[in-house]
Amino acid sequence: MDLLFFGIAKDIVGTSQLDMDFGEDAPNSVAELKQALKKRYPEFSKLTSLAIAVNSEYASDDVQLKSNDEVAIIPPVSGG
């Protein structure tokens, strides 16, 4: 699954873009993706919040992921 990482998420994973192979844990929804990320990188559990954007829109936990979606990991924003 192709994923984009920003801010501290990029530091946790070590890259800004990654085709991540989750094997049998392959997530089908936003909620499952968050779980899979936290399992693989426990640092994600320590963040103030963790959001997922699908095709550059915030996506709620029940959104289903399709293979051609642009999926981004959004740690707590801090613009301004």
Binding site: T48, V77, S78
Partner: peptide, 27 residues
Amino acid sequence: IDTLKETVPIWKKELFKNKSVWVSAHP
């Protein structure tokens, strides 16, 4: 400005002399 700070995906890192910190990342 208040809503921009809550919703717009922009991230800020504070660079100090001996360390750097992503703002708001941790509680």
